[in-house]
Deep mutational scan, measured.
Amino acid sequence: DETGKELVLVLYDYQEKSPREVTIKKGDILTLLNSTNKDWWKIEVNDRQGFVPAAYLKKLD
């Protein structure tokens, strides 16, 4: 059920640097789980959840 889920576009590649982070690729469109922290957003990638720098993402309307 995708209702109410926010999507984000990945602006730059990011390689995870800790187990709490996930790797993302430029151009991916992913589900945003939590954006309350202005610097690190929690997203879902391939059934994995983790954090990436918010500056690497853009919210889609």
Rank of each mutant, 00 (worst) to 15 (best):
D1Q: 15
D1A: 15
D1M: 15
D1E: 12
D1H: 14
E2N: 14
E2G: 15
T3E: 12
T3Y: 12
G4M: 13
G4Y: 15
G4C: 11
G4L: 15
K5H: 14
K5R: 12
K5C: 09
K5Y: 12
E6K: 13
E6H: 13
E6D: 12
E6R: 13
E6L: 14
E6W: 10
E6N: 12
E6I: 14
L7G: 04
L7E: 07
V8H: 01
V8N: 00
L9I: 12
L9N: 02
L9P: 00
L9V: 10
V10W: 01
V10P: 00
V10N: 00
V10C: 10
V10M: 01
V10T: 05
L11N: 02
L11P: 00
Y12H: 14
Y12M: 12
Y12E: 14
Y12F: 14
Y12A: 14
Y12I: 08
D13W: 03
D13S: 10
D13K: 03
D13Q: 03
D13C: 04
Y14T: 00
Y14K: 01
Y14L: 01
Q15K: 13
Q15M: 12
Q15F: 15
Q15A: 14
Q15P: 05
Q15Y: 14
E16M: 12
E16W: 06
E16N: 06
K17F: 06
K17S: 09
K17W: 03
S18F: 07
S18V: 05
P19N: 12
P19T: 09
P19F: 07
R20T: 13
R20L: 14
R20G: 15
E21D: 04
E21F: 04
E21P: 05
E21A: 05
E21L: 03
E21M: 04
E21K: 04
E21T: 06
V22E: 02
V22H: 02
V22M: 08
V22G: 02
V22I: 10
V22F: 06
T23M: 03
T23G: 05
I24S: 01
I24Q: 00
I24Y: 04
K25V: 10
K25C: 09
K25Q: 09
K26A: 11
K26H: 06
K26R: 10
K26I: 05
K26C: 07
G27Q: 02
G27R: 02
D28P: 01
D28G: 06
D28A: 11
D28C: 08
I29T: 07
I29V: 10
L30I: 10
L30F: 09
L30K: 02
L30V: 15
L30A: 14
T31W: 12
T31Y: 10
T31K: 15
T31F: 11
T31N: 09
T31I: 15
L32V: 07
L32M: 04
L32I: 05
L32E: 00
L32C: 09
L33I: 15
L33F: 04
N34S: 12
N34M: 08
N34D: 14
S35V: 05
S35T: 09
S35W: 11
S35L: 04
S35C: 09
S35F: 07
T36Q: 12
T36M: 11
T36L: 10
T36R: 11
T36W: 08
T36I: 08
T36A: 13
N37L: 09
N37H: 12
N37I: 06
N37R: 09
N37W: 07
K38H: 13
K38F: 08
K38E: 10
D39R: 12
D39A: 10
D39I: 13
D39W: 14
D39N: 12
W41A: 03
W41L: 02
I43D: 00
I43A: 01
I43G: 00
I43E: 00
I43L: 08
E44M: 09
E44T: 08
V45N: 10
V45Q: 07
N46C: 09
N46M: 09
D47G: 15
D47P: 03
D47Q: 13
R48C: 05
R48L: 06
R48I: 07
R48E: 05
R48Q: 08
Q49L: 07
Q49P: 05
Q49W: 08
Q49N: 08
Q49M: 09
Q49I: 15
G50N: 02
G50T: 05
G50H: 06
G50C: 06
G50Q: 04
G50I: 07
F51K: 02
F51N: 03
F51L: 08
F51Y: 13
F51A: 02
V52N: 01
V52M: 01
V52G: 02
P53H: 02
P53F: 02
P53M: 03
P53L: 03
A54Y: 03
A54F: 02
A54Q: 07
A54G: 05
A54K: 06
A55G: 10
A55S: 13
A55Y: 10
Y56P: 01
Y56N: 11
L57E: 01
L57I: 06
L57H: 00
K58Y: 15
K58V: 14
K58T: 12
K59L: 11
K59A: 06
L60E: 04
L60G: 04
L60Q: 06
L60S: 04
L60V: 13
D61T: 13
D61S: 14
D61M: 14
D61E: 14
D61N: 15
